[in-house]
């Protein structure tokens, strides 16, 4: 790999630009898609690899090319700069998520409590509008306060976020479901919310709750059966 390709690859990643590295396996010749002019068949394979986030080998003129997608990191938006968030954020970062913590309560969202973490003190709906969750984004609400959680969930439900989770007991969630229905969301939309949030591992401490939440996010992302089971037993889904 040439220093030029390496520097461009790192620059693209730092800028959050999706890029595919194409390598001819016979001699190591490389190019970056979409910036370099790559033969048509390779461009198609590169676009598909980025879309599926899956590397593959393709054949061009009888020679194997390795198509290696480099997508920007998955994102996690945490609403509520609370104790569980303090445990959740570093664990999520280790799992490869780019994390943003949203909390307009400046007593919670402090640099001291979240050193080096991207913080937003905007109201959750405004923060969500700025962050624009996409299909590679997970959203978790942790405040227990409908004034803060609901506007975030409302925006999350209108987004293609791949995971939406809300902290709170089944009773709390039942009330939340009623409020979201008043806002006009139907059962199918509300069933996207994982609540009570996290896999049922009898978590008690903040790090344990963080672990259960992240395990559920990974399970949903990877299509594990365990996540489906949990979602089906959630009150939101039961009411559907």
């Amino acid at each position: 790999m040439t220093p030029e390709i390496l520097q461009r690859l790192l620059a693209d990643r730092d800028a959050g630009r999706p890029v595919a590295l194409l390598t001819r396996l016979t001699d190591g010749r490389q190019c970056l898609w979409p910036d370099d002019a790559c033969p048509g068949a390779l461009a198609e394979a590169a676009a598909a690899a980025l879309r599926d986030d899956t590397a593959r080998t393709v054949s061009l003129d009888g020679e194997p090319w390795f198509v290696h997608p480099h997508n920007p990191p998955l994102r996690l938006i945490v609403v509520g700069a609370v104790h569980v968030a303090q445990a959740l954020v570093p664990m999520a970062a280790r799992l490869g998520f780019a994390v943003t913590v949203v909390d307009p309560r400046r007593a919670f969202a402090t640099e001291e409590r979240f050193e080096g973490v991207t913080l937003s003190t905007d109201w959750p709906d405004e923060a969500m509008d700025a962050l624009r969750p996409d299909a590679r984004t997970a959203v978790v609400t942790l405040t227990h306060d409908p004034k803060l959680d609901d506007p975030a969930l409302e925006r999350a439900l209108k987004s293609p976020a791949f995971y939406i989770g809300a902290l709170g007991s089944r009773r709390t969630h039942a009330k939340r479901v009623a409020r979201l229905k008043e806002m006009g969301f139907d059962d199918a939309a509300i069933a996207r919310i994982h609540a009570p949030v996290g896999l049922d591992i009898e978590a008690v401490t903040a790090p344990e709750i963080a672990l259960s939440i992240l395990a559920e996010i990974v399970a949903v992302r990877r299509g594990a059966a365990i996540a489906t089971k949990k979602a089906a037993s959630a009150p939101g889904a039961a009411a559907a």
């Binding site: 990191p73 954020v89 570093p90 970062a93 280790r94 799992l95 490869g96 998520f97 780019a98 994390v99 080096g116 973490v117 991207t118």
Partner: peptide, 8 residues
């Protein structure tokens, strides 16, 4: 905070 750690 991003994943500039052991996976990088």
């Amino acid at each position: 905070m991003t994943s500039r750690d052991s996976e990088d």
